[in-house]
Amino acid sequence: MKTQSVLEKVLKSGNLAVTSECGPPRGTSAAAVREKAELLRGYCDGINVTDNQTAMVRMSSLAACILIRQMGLHSILQMTTRDKNRLALQSDILGAYAHEIDTVLCLSGDHPKFGDHPMASNVYDLDSVQLIQTVKQMRDDGKFQGGADIADPPKMFIGAAANPFADPFELRVARLAKKVNAGVDFIQTQCIYNVDKFEQWMEAVVKRGLHKEVYIMAGITPMKTAGMAHYMKKRVPGMDVPDEVVDRMASVPKEEMAEEGIKICIETIERLKKVEGVAGFHIMAIEWEEKVPEIVKRAGLYPRPEV
């Protein structure tokens, strides 16, 4: 074991791991964070806390991670390289680890253009691959990126994202390999709606043996409405929502759409369980956290293993 991370333990045990996600509030309410996290208690092995997602200002990922950790739950610190340079990123990692947060997700983040501060400067001192390298060096060599020794290095379990649906498709496995070379331990993928394409990607991943070097968790997001399906198809960069998914959502009466979304999500999980190399699921129920327990149960992923 590289770390004390519960997520690492579950993955290592060979069980399908489950992570979920919690977006901090656009305000100061600790209660709002706790309320969301409480919904997930017992249903996942780690809770991702997003870092100014879609480039909108929210309560800091680190602060919300600490609140959740204090509830005895395991938060996963998402870090984008958009908002902070390497000094800030590394100091946040030290702080997180001091609060017993031992799992991190390294991201480049959405461009500020998409958020509520399109006028902001975007930092990108590091990119996501370089952040992986940095955290690994902090953990394994006990050194900061600049080379100085760290007193009590943070033993972080290192995650990153992969989007099998972005272009060029032929580079998507190579880019994963690059993250593996940089030292990533686990991957959470972009939400999967185009399962065929995901399987194609996974096949190439397995062919290269990358699934043996990194745990790959399949990203799942339930759709609430046909409108959301349509929006994700048209507006969210790097999202691949096939027409049949949009049509299926639109084919049921409005009051049944939510249930249809959950059904699609469970069918997807069932199908992905059979795909070689899938080590778990990352269930992102955006502003719909209360549905996660139901999805986890219905997908046969409950109870979570004791590790």
């Binding site: 959405d110 253009k113 975007n122 990119d127 691959v129 972005a166 272009d167 580079l171 880019r175």
Partner: peptide, 21 residues
């Protein structure tokens, strides 16, 4: 690159175009 990423492309690359436009 809009994010001056040195190990790209990021997940926003679509049809040869950048996620920003």
């Amino acid at each position: 690159c809009s994010k001056r990423i040195l190990n790209g492309p990021c997940g926003g690359s679509t049809g040869g175009k950048c996620e920003i436009s």
